[in-house]
């Protein structure tokens, strides 16, 4: 492993992604990617008594699913990196409390999934680990309750607002000599261009995505054409358009092979999700369900995955703070 350029780590042992799993909720079941997920749950409570318990169940069941698919016992997992949006990462903590796997709880807002993959692949690259598990979850109802309004409140969502994805995605990293491999990681810097509208996360996070994107290209010497697909976390429709615009200004034309998980997961017109999906589970489920399958089928051979997060909470928002963004990138190749 060596550091190249300003921020990028090049991994020599190239951990491979052994398997993935994604479980989603009812709204995602109606979306265009429904057939790619391992399981779609019809009831957003999933038989539990609260949204928070349901979210913990999502992450727990997703981890069980990925371990089952990879045929690995939980005792063979060295470490797990997990996170979510709820205060003190309680969904991950409660979802994993019975797992008996050494646990790192992460918070990077909606960028947590790739943050986990970055750290997990460094652990793998050290040569000391055999299996690393990375997982994140989010739940529309628990997120609304914590960050916005009660579900029954008769308010209108603004056109730039995004819909938190209900679900969980999990990835297991191993030493196999089968792709896809994680080859480079580019952890991002916190970027804040002063957006204060909590209903416009896409605009708040796009500059962070731009910073990480440009740094990744500069550090690796690659161009957008090198990748079959560049996929961002959850910028949504508006954030996607903004990123294409501002990347062009910096001399990178990404319009051809670029898309966003928040755009992919919902049908904007049919499902009335305004600017698209968001949440820790957005990129986690789209990658684990959809993109990973495209990679194993060789439809995507080189993928740049950039997860974006809005580093805010309801207290700072009420205190009039702006919303800093962050973005982490990993390069995954067959």
């Amino acid at each position: 492993m060596k550091k190249i350029g300003k921020q990028t780590l090049q991994l020599d042992n190239k951990p491979s992604i052994l398997n993935t799993a994604a479980i989603v909720g009812p709204k995602e079941l109606d979306g265009p990617l429904a057939k790619y997920f391992d399981k779609c749950v019809e009831d957003e409570f999933w038989g539990e008594s609260s949204w928070e318990k349901a979210e913990s169940k999502f992450i727990k069941e997703t981890i069980n699913t990925v371990l089952g698919k990879a045929n690995i016992s939980s005792t063979d997992v060295d470490y797990v990196f997990a996170g979510d949006l709820l205060n003190q990462c309680i969904s991950s903590c409660f979802g994993l409390r019975d797992s008996n796997i050494p646990f790192f709880g992460l918070f990077g807002a909606c960028s947590t999934f790739v943050e986990g993959l970055c750290l997990g692949s460094v652990f793998m690259d050290s040569g000391a680990c055999n299996h690393i598990l990375c997982a994140t979850s989010s739940h529309f109802c628990s997120a609304e309750k914590q960050f916005r309004f009660p579900l029954e409140l008769g308010n209108q969502r603004t056109p730039t607002s995004q819909w938190t994805v209900t679900g969980s995605g999990a990835v297991i990293l191993g030493k196999n000599n089968v792709g896809p491999y994680i080859t480079h990681i580019t952890p991002g810097k916190i970027v804040d261009l002063g957006i204060k509208d909590a209903n416009n996360m896409g605009a708040a996070m796009a500059p962070a995505a731009l910073s990480t994107l440009c740094t990744h290209f500069e550090d690796t010497g690659r161009t957008p054409d090198y990748y079959d697909a560049i996929i961002t976390g959850d910028l949504g429709h508006l954030g996607k358009d903004i990123l294409i615009d501002i990347a062009k200004n910096k001399g990178y034309d990404i319009a051809k092979n670029y898309n966003d998980c928040g755009v992919l997961i919902f049908d904007k017109k049919k499902q009335d999700t305004h600017s698209g999906g968001s949440g820790c589970a957005c990129i986690a489920t789209v990658f684990s369900g959809y993109l990973y399958k495209l990679m194993t089928e060789n439809k995507i051979k080189k993928l740049l995955l950039i997860a974006t997060g809005a580093l805010t909470n309801s207290t700072t928002a009420q205190q009039g703070e702006s919303i800093p963004g962050i973005a982490h990138a990993i390069s995954i190749e067959m």
Partner: peptide, 26 residues
Amino acid sequence: MNPTDTSKEYGEYVKKKAPNSPILKD
């Protein structure tokens, strides 16, 4: 002009770019 140079320019750029609420229908 590069809209990501300053937060003021970016704010104005985003304002122009963001879709408006359908105010007449609302």
